[in-house]
């Protein structure tokens, strides 16, 4: 289990992580979702003691990471698959880690096998690895000590579709055996297909968290009209809170039938009326992303 409590990290005037609290439970895959630069990696670095927090704590299995006597045996960490000495072979990188943890050398061969790196590939230097091979090596490194907690930052990056499928199954079975899996991604779909729980972060703050089912269900209704502001006004008069999106769509928690009645009474012609069907999460995520869209800013 991972418990993050009021975690804040500031760099001068910039707040990278702002009062973040959440829990990743054992036996579940927790997806940590957010656009690039939202604070996912910083939060994960604080969890494993690489970045000192400004305030707040992150605990793994009830302990601060630095209090774990032999952390590799309890927490598998993959923050950046490319962060390995380019002049070492893949096997040597695992050997070093296994020796540090005090594991038998046999374990290295087991893990190479588990992530499907061949003998030949394992003896190549990491500088000649593709990103996908580095990710596999990184997963092997994280699994080496047979930990009960996995912390993975964007582990699907660089994997081909078959690799992504493989990783999904691997993490699923890990959680099913009681392990805690926390993985981050900036892709909603990736998180949607694997996570049981989702934590959404934007600009350093948690903007939503809960089980995937809850987050996808709590979506309400999406309604479009040629006169969106008139519609929004009519809803407001009827006592229904709504938001008018930049795309002209009006979103509300009320159900579709009620929204239809209000529109009819107000004489507003609708072009679309439907339940949001989990689009709420996607919309929220898009909104988060658009604020940090570099393409948008440049245009």
């Amino acid at each position: 289990m991972i418990t993050v409590d009021s975690l804040t990290k500031r760099y001068g005037a910039f707040t990278a992580v702002d009062d973040v609290s959440f829990t990743a439970e054992g036996g579940r895959v927790t997806g940590f979702l957010g656009p690039n630069g939202a604070g996912k990696s910083t939060t994960m670095r604080v969890m494993v003691g690489l970045t000192p927090p400004t305030s707040g704590t992150a605990r793994v299995s009830g302990r601060l990471f630095s209090d774990l006597p032999n952390p590799g045996l309890e927490v598998g960490v993959l923050l950046d698959a490319s962060a390995q000495h380019a002049g070492r072979t893949g096997r040597e990188i695992l050997n070093i880690a296994a020796r540090t943890m005090g594991l038998p050398r046999l374990r290295v061969e087991e893990m190479l096998d588990r992530v499907s790196l061949t003998e030949k590939e394992a003896d190549r230097r990491v500088r000649n690895y593709s990103l996908g091979m580095r990710q596999r090596l990184g997963i092997a490194h994280a699994l080496l000590g047979d930990p009960t907690v996995l912390i993975l930052d964007e582990p699907a990056n660089g994997l081909d579709p078959a690799g992504i499928r493989w990783m999904r199954d691997l993490l699923r079975s890990y959680a099913d055996q009681g392990g805690t899996v926390l993985l981050s991604s900036h892709l909603l779909h990736e998180i949607e297909v694997i996570a049981d729980d989702i934590v959404v972060i934007g600009n350093g703050k948690i903007v939503a968290q809960g089980t995937k089912n809850d987050l996808l269900a709590a979506a309400g209704t999406v309604v479009r009209s040629a006169a969106p502001s008139t519609l929004a006004h009519a809803l407001e008069l009827a006592g229904i809170a709504s938001t008018l999106g930049p795309d002209g769509a009006v979103r509300t928690q009320a159900d579709a039938a009620r929204v239809g009645e209000v529109a009819l009474a107000a004489g507003v012609a609708l072009t679309e009326l439907r339940p949001a069907d989990g689009a709420g999460l996607e919309e929220m995520f898009l909104e988060l992303t658009s604020e940090t869209q570099r393409e948008g800013a440049a245009a």
């Binding site: 006597p69 032999n70 045996l73 309890e74 000495h85 002049g87 070492r88 040597e92 070093i96 020796r99 540090t100 943890m101 005090g102 594991l103 038998p104 374990r107 087991e110 000590g145 047979d146």
Partner: peptide, 29 residues
């Protein structure tokens, strides 16, 4: 593996092992 390693989870990594690993890292690239 879990059974084999279970006694070491609460054991601090001995300093001699850290030195041996760091020494090895000076040669293995």
């Amino acid at each position: 593996v879990r059974e084999k390693k279970s006694p070491t989870v609460d054991q601090r990594i001995p300093t001699s092992r850290v030195v041996a690993v760091e020494l090895r890292k000076m040669f293995d690239t």
